[in-house]
């Protein structure tokens, strides 16, 4: 007789993990944004006053807004500025945050004090308020919105990079590399960066959800990309005037924001489970 103890198998559930679901949602999102001209039945900016504020039907799947524009088309096109803005923010913040964090952790002493105090100061600023202030100085628009959001979102990367650099600064393999004559930027980029990068990517993916919300917030307040171009935040804002009678005008872009944010959060969670050895099963 063989007695045995095996875990109950949920193998069939394995493909449905957070990472895959997040990945599928993000791919769908990017795909919709890229293929918007092919998929949308109407021009998103053509106004048709006769058809304003129609409820969803077979012709206008998500209904129309108060200028009679097709909401389905506008939501599809609205994914574009959101994704562009989010990518710009990540491209700006990750390198800056990593550089500041690694330098602070590696050099220590005064370099660390100055860089980390700077990080603390920026971190203590309320990010959306500062972004709004910056946009009102720079003028509204996609690029300025990205700059404004980037300005306040790099500190979390810097802090994490510094902590991780500190943890490996005295490791044997870095000491060994130094003994072999590897120093300076070669050590930082060739040896430290590869160890810090995975967690920075995870953090970026997790932050994306928040950045999407912040971008929508800017749009809602009229500080993002300007009308008549479709943007989810400003679409919610214009829909909110009629939210009690024609709820779908605000709800459709709102759900789009929710799903996009959720997609990146799932992706980030899944990446963390995969890349972080501490989450080993």
């Amino acid at each position: 007789m063989i007695i045995s103890k095996k875990g109950v198998s949920f193998r069939w559930l394995r493909p449905f993990n957070t990472l895959n679901i997040g990945l599928i949602l993000v791919v769908i999102l990017v795909g919709l944004a890229l293929l918007a001209p092919l998929l949308s039945p109407f021009d998103p900016n053509i106004q048709n006053i006769q058809e304003r504020l129609l409820a969803p039907d077979s012709q206008h799947w998500f209904g129309t807004d108060r200028f009679g524009r097709d909401l389905f088309s506008r939501v599809l096109y609205g994914a574009r500025p959101t994704l562009i803005l989010v990518s710009l923010v990540i491209l700006l913040t990750v390198p800056i945050g990593l550089a500041i964090g690694i330098f602070a952790g590696y050099f220590g002493g005064w370099v660390e004090r100055i860089l980390m105090r700077l990080t603390d100061i920026v971190m203590s600023l309320p990010s959306l308020v500062i972004a709004l202030a910056l946009v009102s100085i720079l003028g509204p628009g996609l690029m300025n919105g990205a700059l404004a959001l980037a300005f306040t979102s790099w500190p979390s990367f810097a802090r994490q990079a510094r902590t991780e650099t500190l943890a490996i600064r005295n490791s044997d393999y870095l000491s060994a590399a130094k003994m072999q004559g590897i120093t300076g930027f070669r050590l930082i980029f060739g040896h430290i960066l590869p160890l810090i990068l995975p967690s920075a990517i995870v953090r970026a993916a997790l932050n994306l959800g928040g950045i999407i919300l912040a971008a929508a917030g800017l749009g809602f307040l009229g500080m993002g990309i300007q009308p008549p171009a479709a943007e989810w935040g400003s679409m919610v804002a214009s829909g909110s005037r009629v939210i009690f009678d024609q709820w779908w005008v605000a709800a459709v872009p709102g759900v789009a924001i929710l799903l996009a944010s959720l997609a990146f959060n799932l992706l980030g969670d899944g990446l963390r489970d995969k890349m972080d050895p501490r989450h080993d099963k």
Partner: peptide, 10 residues
């Protein structure tokens, strides 16, 4: 180094 698990870059 002492610990061969820690002295090579992973």
């Amino acid at each position: 180094f002492q610990d061969p698990y820690a002295s090579l870059h992973p």
